[in-house]
């Protein structure tokens, strides 16, 4: 991994922020000829306050619902000028799964040449952890104090329905995997999408030093599966391939997180069933059954 840093000292990130860690790897992979497009999200604040910035590529802050559309405009203009500059969106789950889904869908459908990275901390983090479409079943947020009664929106299958040339999942706990996927995404013309799980210490209510550990538990329990889909061909990535041979119980992932404290057995059972179903679906797809 290159030594050059594009996320410099002096960010306003919370201690243990895995979204900022993921951004560090994303930009190391993308390199200096990159424009980062950021809709309203934690990164709007993390990058620093005028007149300073802690990010060493141009960062264009855009309207909450507009990441996909803003990137469309920028990518088209740069390509018209004959420039190969990477156009990378770095958006949260609210800006991707909820308010920005229309612009994302439009940009994917139009074949925009860009990479959309959604870092998913499973709630509206910047405003203090309110429920989003990315919040999982049973998780407590400030607007679901009893735990979210609905399941997490499956943005990956929504994105997959647009048939982008490349899409993948990742997690900051697996930097090499994330780095490689960003490189690959940017080597392919057209739209690509990477869904990054971003454990959040204050939001998920776990100690700040445990972000990497929580990310690893997510993969080891199968609640988060690392994979990539290139031109429709699915491949489970090696950390998940290894982990899924002998997955740990889901409880080991949930227990350190305050947001799942007191989860009832019925909800736990539904979560487990959904993980099993998802793994089955991915296995079938990888083996070419569906």
């Amino acid at each position: 991994m290159p030594k050059e840093e594009f996320v410099l000292k002096g960010t306003s990130a919370c201690p243990g922020c895995s979204a900022s860690l993921a951004l560090r790897y994303v930009l190391k992979a993308a390199g200096p000829d990159t424009v980062l497009i950021v809709p309203a999200c934690c990164t709007s604040v993390v990058q620093g306050m005028y007149p300073n910035t802690a990010v060493n590529v141009p960062v264009v802050n855009v309207g909450f619902a507009t990441a996909g559309a803003s990137a469309s405009g920028m990518s088209n203009a740069l390509r018209a000028l004959g420039k190969k500059t990477n156009v990378v969106v770095y958006a949260g789950d609210g800006g991707t799964l909820d308010i920005g889904i229309q612009a994302l869908s439009g940009a994917l459908e139009r074949g925009t040449d860009f990479l959309y990275v959604c870092y998913d901390n499973e709630a509206y983090g910047n405003t203090g952890m309110q429920r989003s479409g990315g919040t999982p079943l049973g998780a407590k947020t400030t607007t679901t104090p009893l735990g979210k009664p609905e399941v997490k929106k499956d943005i990956e299958r929504i994105v997959a329905a647009h048939e982008p040339p490349f899409m993948a999942t990742a997690c900051a706990a697996y930097p090499q995997d994330l780095f490689r996927k960003v490189k690959k995404a940017l080597s392919i013309r057209g739209p690509s999408f990477i869904h990054v799980l971003a454990p959040c210490p204050p939001g998920w209510r776990y100690p700040t030093e445990k972000s990497v550990e929580i990310g690893k538990l997510a993969v080891k329990s199968g609640v988060w599966v690392l994979y990539e889909r290139e031109y429709g061909q699915l491949a489970i990535s090696s950390p998940s391939r290894t982990a899924l041979k002998n997955p740990i119980p889901l409880e080991e992932y949930l227990a350190p997180q305050g947001r799942f404290a007191g989860i009832d057995p019925k909800t736990l059972d539904i979560l487990k069933q959904r993980i099993a179903k998802n793994l089955q679906r991915l296995a079938r797809e990888e083996s070419g059954v569906c």
Binding site: I37, V62, G63, A69, S70, M74, N76, A103, G106
Partner: peptide
């Protein structure tokens, strides 16, 4: 896919 995106795309460009 919308006017909101039309203006956003013009801004990006």
């Amino acid at each position: 896919e919308s006017e909101h995106s039309a203006m956003a795309a013009c801004i990006g460009a």
